[in-house]
Amino acid sequence: MKIAVCVNHVPDTETKVRVASDGKTIDPSGVNYVLNPYDEFAVEEALKIREKNNGEILAVSLGNDSNKETLRKVLAMGVDKAVLLKAAAEQDSYSVAKAISEYLKTYEPDLILIGKQSIDSDNSQVGGLLAEFLGLPSVSVVVKLEIADGIAKAEREIEGAHEHVELTLPCVISTQRGLNEPRYPSLKGIMQAKKKTIEEVDAQQTEPRVKIIGMKSPPEKQPGKIVGEGPDAVPELVRLLREEAKVV
């Protein structure tokens, strides 16, 4: 079984975002970049599927040289091969999915795993676009997955419920927290990963279709008032919620 897993290299959740001088992107100084948390679930799931079904896992990341750090990490987790699709800085979901789909056409995976969203641009689109560009079915926000006899049975999280979805392979699965507990790379894995080559390919360029006009900080919330201390403050809090905020 050939599994492709798409991984992104993103600012970690502790990042305090400052808008860069171009007014369109974030200031990268002091920012720590990590493997996108939702992609970790995709990598872990790929490893678990390979343990059962054998086969090969290819990790694909689109970006620049700094993405190699993330590719190195997933190799250390146990992924077999890694490819960096080198691309211009300005991308949107459409151009990313187009470039990855073009590359994967030559790899012909049985299964494509990807995090349900990148925690930087928060688009939740690449999985669906990728599936359509490749003419494959997809399921998103997956919290449970079983694969047998060319069929994927997935549970997908929706508002207040889980949808049980059946799809034929090959397909695209986008992963959500809850699916598994990603492993830490072992020391042996880290050593082996150092010896592996990361293939570098120029990504097919497509013009981004969602153009960023500008980036701004959200309106700053003014600190409100401390109503009081302890249970004695409760009647005043309820009064404010009713009379001032009018929300209860």
Partner: peptide, 8 residues
């Protein structure tokens, strides 16, 4: 943490 204005 940030907002972007976009045009399609």
């Amino acid at each position: 943490k940030a907002l972007i204005d976009v045009k399609i």
